[in-house]
Design a protein around this nucleic acid. Structure first.
Length: 225
DNA sequence: AATCGTTGCAACCGCAGTGTG
DNA sequence: GCACACTGCGGTTGCAACGAT
């Protein structure tokens, strides 16, 4: 049983990332890939947890990531997939290149959830209203109290036609994979072991002060420290 | 101008699944 | 088969920015 190195003691930094930290993480991953999230922050010279590094990379730093500016089409995809599969944010994000699961989740929680609830409320109101009025006298769904028309789901997008674009079976529909993953996987831990085994590669590294490397070693030496 | 409430986003936390010795 | 480590996911929180009063 391998021993666990207590890398993450009380020196772990939390909170917002600085530009310097972003640069370090981006530079490291672009060069070496993310072969081990737990060890990565130490190799990259960051006083962060592996989890924090992973999150920062996945949600903010990785190439081609998009922030904000959700289009109506984006919103429709989220609403439709959420209707089909629920809170599977990673699966939903996989259908939206450049979007992170966190981004999708935030979009849902801050915008779409309320919007859908409002729509459902209007539908229920209309159903009740239809029982006492003729169909052509029923008020429009888009006539919500504070719903700005620009920002609202188009009236022609209904729960019924959300389902038409894909096959309907989410799990058989192809996922859109990010390009970066394939390139990153070209860097294996084995390759890194070799890289770190050479003094020149070690010299390239910027190590944090609390990590006392006395001599170049392999990943395995480090792991059994 | 000051205060308060709301919104949007970044980041953390806890848990489950999977891999490994 | 078990114990532990690691990763990824989803829920939640904290906070800055913004708008309304």
């Amino acid at each position: 049983m391998k021993k666990t190195l207590t890398l993450e003691k009380n020196t772990i930094k939390k909170g917002a990332w600085s530009k310097e930290e972003d640069d370090k993480l981006r530079a490291y991953i672009q060069r070496y890939g993310h072969w081990n999230w737990r060890l990565l922050p130490k190799f990259a010279g960051l006083s962060r947890s592996g989890k924090s590094c992973r999150l920062r990379w996945m949600n903010y730093l990785r190439p081609n990531i998009k922030h904000g500016n959700f289009t109506k089409e984006d919103d429709e995809i989220i609403v439709r997939l959420h209707k089909q599969i629920g809170n599977k944010w990673t699966a939903i994000a996989a259908h939206m290149p450049g979007r992170s699961d966190n981004d999708v989740k935030n979009r849902w929680n801050s915008h779409l959830k309320k919007r859908v609830q409002d729509d459902q409320t209007h539908v229920l109101e209309n159903i009740n209203h239809d029982e006492t009025t003729k169909p052509d006298e029923a008020p429009s769904c888009s006539s919500g109290t504070d719903s700005s028309s620009d920002d609202h789901i188009p009236s022609d997008v209904t729960p019924q036609n959300y389902d038409y674009e894909l096959s309907g079976d989410f799990w058989t529909d192809p996922f859109l994979l990010d390009i970066y993953t394939s390139s990153v996987e070209n860097t294996t831990p084995w390759g890194l072991v070799h890289n770190f085994g050479s003094q020149s590669s070690w010299d390239d590294m910027t190590m944090s002060e609390d990590l006392s490397w006395s001599a170049p070693g392999s990943y395995f030496e480090y792991n059994n420290y």
